[in-house]
Computed example of a mutant assay.
Amino acid sequence: MEQKHTPEYAHLKAGVTGSDLLEAVRRSGYPLQAAVADKLQQALSENDIWGEVQEEWAYIDRESGQARALDVFADIPLSRSAKGGEAHCRLNILIECKQSELPYVFFLRKEAPQNSVAFPEIIGTAGPDMQIFAPVNDGKMPPNFSYLLSVHDALACHEFQVFDNPPFHAISLTKAARRGGSKLELTGEDAYRSITLPLLKSADHLTSIAPRGDRDPIRFLASLAVVDAPMIGTLQHDGKNVFLAVPWVRMSYLEPFNERQSWNRTASKVRYFDVVHSSRLSRYLDVLLKGVGACADRAIENYSVLKSGVAVMGSEDEYVKMHELEEERRKYITEGPMGRIFKAYGGRQLKLQEGAEIAEDVIAVLDW
Score class of each variant (00 low, 15 high):
Val270Ile: 15
Ser100Pro: 04
Thr234Glu: 08
Gly336Asp: 14
Val246Met: 04
Arg265Phe: 11
Ala126Val: 05
Val136Pro: 14
Ala229Asn: 08
Gly213Val: 10
Ile363Glu: 06
Val270Thr: 11
Lys307Ile: 08
Ile333Tyr: 04
Lys269Tyr: 14
Gln261Gly: 12
Ala203Pro: 02
Gln114Ser: 11
Ala191Phe: 01
Gln114Ile: 07
Ser262Trp: 04
Val16Thr: 15
Ala203Lys: 12
Ala356Met: 10
Val227Cys: 12
Val287Glu: 14
Arg212Cys: 13
Trp263Thr: 13
Gly309Asn: 03
Glu55Phe: 02
Ser208Glu: 11
Gly233Ala: 14
Ile93Thr: 10
Glu327Cys: 02
Pro198Trp: 05
His5Trp: 10
Asp38Ile: 12
Ala69Gly: 09
Glu63Pro: 01
Ile171Ser: 08
Ile363Val: 15
Ser304Pro: 01
Val246Gly: 00
Val242Arg: 00
Pro198Val: 00
Leu325Arg: 01
Phe106Trp: 09
Pro230Arg: 11
Phe257His: 12
Ala69Met: 10
Ala296Phe: 00
Val72Ile: 10
Arg27Cys: 03
Asp216His: 06
Pro256Met: 03
Leu352Val: 09
Pro337Ser: 09
Thr6Glu: 11
Arg193Cys: 05
Pro120Lys: 03
Glu328Tyr: 11
Glu55Pro: 00
Leu184Thr: 14
Gly213Leu: 11
Ile171Gly: 05
Ala191Pro: 00
Leu40Ser: 01
Val162Thr: 13
Glu326Met: 07
Lys201Glu: 05
Tyr319Cys: 03
Val36Ser: 00
Ala69Pro: 01
His11Pro: 02
Lys183Ala: 15
Val270Ser: 04
Leu21Asp: 13
Gly314His: 05
Ser278Leu: 00
Tyr272Asp: 03
Thr334Asn: 13
Glu52Gln: 12
Met130Leu: 14
His152Asp: 04
Asp216Cys: 04
Val365Met: 06
Ala176Tyr: 02
Ser282Gln: 12
Arg62Glu: 12
Ser150Val: 03
Asp153Thr: 03
Val25Ala: 11
Asp61His: 11
Arg330Met: 10
Leu44Asp: 07
Ala24Ile: 10
Ala24Val: 05
Ile300Gln: 14
Ala112Met: 13
Val287His: 15
Ala359Phe: 09
Leu40His: 02
Val320Lys: 14
Glu86Ala: 15
Ile341Gly: 08
Glu101Trp: 02
Val227Phe: 05
Ile358Ser: 14
Arg80Ile: 00
Asn144Arg: 10
Asp75Glu: 09
Glu354Ile: 06
Lys331Met: 12
Pro337Asp: 07
Pro256Ser: 07
Glu255Arg: 07
Arg109Val: 07
